[in-house]
Design a protein around this nucleic acid. Sequence first.
DNA 1: CTACGTATAATTGTATACACTTATACGTAG
DNA 2: CTACGTATAAGTGTATACAATTATACGTAG
Lengths: 230, 230
Amino acid sequence: MGKYNVKQEVTDKFSLRGRVFHKIREDILSGKYKDNEELKEVAIGDELGVSRTPVREAFRQLELEGLIHIIPNKGAYVTGITVKDVKDIYMMRSLLEGLCAKWATENITKEQLEEMEENVYLAEFHAAKGNTQQLAELDNRFHEIMYEACNSKMLEKQLRDFHDYVLRVRKKTLSQNQRSTASNKEHKFIFEAIKSGDPAKAEEEATKHVLSAYENIVKNGLHEAYGSDE
Amino acid sequence: MGKYNVKQEVTDKFSLRGRVFHKIREDILSGKYKDNEELKEVAIGDELGVSRTPVREAFRQLELEGLIHIIPNKGAYVTGITVKDVKDIYMMRSLLEGLCAKWATENITKEQLEEMEENVYLAEFHAAKGNTQQLAELDNRFHEIMYEACNSKMLEKQLRDFHDYVLRVRKKTLSQNQRSTASNKEHKFIFEAIKSGDPAKAEEEATKHVLSAYENIVKNGLHEAYGSDE
DNA sequence: CTACGTATAATTGTATACACTTATACGTAG
DNA sequence: CTACGTATAAGTGTATACAATTATACGTAG
């Protein structure tokens, strides 16, 4: 990966296909399309004012993301995302973010470490002022820095995917002030472990960080946004 | 997921698009297309005797799998898979297979447990006879059973993806007899932990299992199949 | 000889047309 | 009334046509 290419979006948001992809994705995650609902190429194309071609290409991508499943010659059906899915992802993430923090400790550059430090202290400031928007961005960025610092293209991609997947949930939980201050504190612990060059500690703190986000989610239900499945 | 739908392939192998997808994927993983090589829609279409449409759809999927990256209005470029990528995946897998074994212990059905037991003992038999083909299939199936048993759609999909990704490597390492017998023994340990209802033990054994496969790979180089990147 | 700009070619993006498969409606036999 | 079969409609799969963008070649000014 690299210095340029600041944020390589897998799907360009400006092409028709990209817009269609993001729109459908959003509509599935937001619950507009219900579980098992059939998505028809022409209907969606008409709605967005495009032909079937970009819609079909978007479908192929959504299928690989697991948001829809396509039965050949039949149709595309929404797979949706349940409460259990989100929880499972958090458990998987807790392990992989741990690994990421460990590797980041061993590979982080001076610049990345500095940005991380800045991020942590800036977040403290915005938390005090109760600015949720900035906090969400800083939180995003903190994890992004770790992903970049771990020096593993595969792990980076994986965690980005997860991160994206549960983005809606994260936005919601971070808007609760108590969680965001706790989250900041945990970021600080991770940062300090990385700075002191202690991979095992960094791993432990990052794992704990995701787990406590998970606990928070479990406590607060998240029933409205997703179908309950258990 | 379910009783029916024994093996839901994400991309149907019989449609043109599916065939194109698998062909290009294979060609990238086998090294036919070099790193950063540009893939042109018409060229590939002509080679496979199809039009651009299925090729384009296959490209979109390959992009999401991370095997190629597409620059809008420019082209599709091979991302390839390096030795480090494979190693990183093994590290990630070791954690997630551990989690999978833990969850499988808590959710496995009687039938799945029976099939697993049968699998382990059958593998012992074929190992003694040195039948590598059957061994590879049994190994695949052992992990498949765990994926199904863990009762997590998300984790199942993730591990299948990883599994697929490094399939070529696994085939190769399993053809070495000493590794395959060691692998069998480890499967047996995992199975016994699951059967005895000890999630922590199952997790530990599954993690160790993937790690030892990783060690084996590191020892044996795997230089020929993939570009070295470190 | 180099640098720049324009014309041309090559390639991707999107829309449309046609082929093929699957679903639906309706009529008829029993 | 039900079961079956055929005709029709709807929808996906693929190919092709056209538009937009990017790369290349070549000529000209300096």
